[in-house]
Amino acid sequence: MDRNISQLGNGQEASIRRVGGHSSLSQRLQELGFTPGATVRLVAKAAFGGAMAFQVRGSTIALRRADAACVEI
């Protein structure tokens, strides 16, 4: 099973391998800086399986968990 950034532990970093999912979503994620090769760090998780916050290219961006699962590492 491919790993994705939603499975990162708090404070963990990883390098993006591929961005999957529906094309409009995957393009928006890439436009936000989640491109293959970029380093991503998970910094926070909201309660009850809610959104997660990541740092990428110096910005902090919150993604819904399902969206984050499209970003493979």
């Binding site: 999912g21 529906h22 409009s24 979503l25 928006r28 994620l29 936000l32 959104a51 916050a53 910005s59 902090t60 961006i61 919150a62 993604l63 819904r64 399902a66 969206d67």
Partner: peptide
């Protein structure tokens, strides 16, 4: 429903 998800810059 559209495939737009939720992303917001903090």
């Amino acid at each position: 429903p559209s495939h737009t998800g939720f992303q917001v810059e903090l």
